[in-house]
Design a protein around this nucleic acid. Sequence first.
DNA 1: CAATTATATACGCCTTGACAGATACGTCCA
DNA 2: TGGACGTATCTGTCAAGGCGTATATAATTG
Lengths: 134, 134
Amino acid sequence: MKKYDLALLFAALADRTRLRLLNLMNGKEVCVCYFVEILGQSQPKISRHLAYLRRASIVAARREGKWMYYRIVVPKHAGAARILNETLSVLGEDKAMQADLSRFTKACCAPQKLPALDGAPLPIPVEAVGCVAC
Amino acid sequence: MKKYDLALLFAALADRTRLRLLNLMNGKEVCVCYFVEILGQSQPKISRHLAYLRRASIVAARREGKWMYYRIVVPKHAGAARILNETLSVLGEDKAMQADLSRFTKACCAPQKLPALDGAPLPIPVEAVGCVAC
DNA sequence: CAATTATATACGCCTTGACAGATACGTCCA
DNA sequence: TGGACGTATCTGTCAAGGCGTATATAATTG
């Protein structure tokens, strides 16, 4: 449990768009195009916020062909991990965040109905991704 | 559990000075002069950060004569409360924060040795303050 | 009341972040 | 090799935050 900049973690969490992104990533590795579609925000905006989260080391990116997958990375620092997990849990209780998730799962069931998602790779449960990383 | 701006809470927590202040306030109502002395920062700086925490509704101030006491106010919103409490708990495990606290308690034992604190009111355990509020 | 003490706010400066829009980069496919 | 597509970054603009310094407010004391 070495020194860790908690203020930096909180700065990363101090934006609604980033909280929505984290909520969508909770438990899965998600392709950028889904974020753009589900949050209805411009692609550069999504990308910038993902870059911010990456800089703060709470998400990691993985390229697969032309798609980028993002996933949450729980910090090594035990305290930071507790705060992040608690935050994810609180997000899960939020109505608006649940609405995002429900649009998300709906989109996953019929991606071909959304032009932007037709042909895009589905999110991958993190358990399954674990193998890829090894 | 109505709508609550979590991002605003995180913004309030996204500064080291404010985290140190919260850590010092944990469990007690503290006079501003103690913050200034223990953190070794300028009085206006401390005051501005306290104002920020007040704006974010996670601390409350009480005037008593010429002194101002600050204390933590746990948000009504259950999720926010969990995050704040978890944060305070994590702060308590941090070496630097513990060092602040140990200088704090030492100062309280012999305030007259520190010019700035000579005659200043000691911090008050929150349990005791509860009565005042009623 | 004037002076003093405790605290808050205003001001000016600089840095950072958020945004939209344009563009660059990386990968795949024809 | 040149699109086409998915994604990232650059540019410029604006607002907000952090700091030090100076000053204002509030309560107390002489």
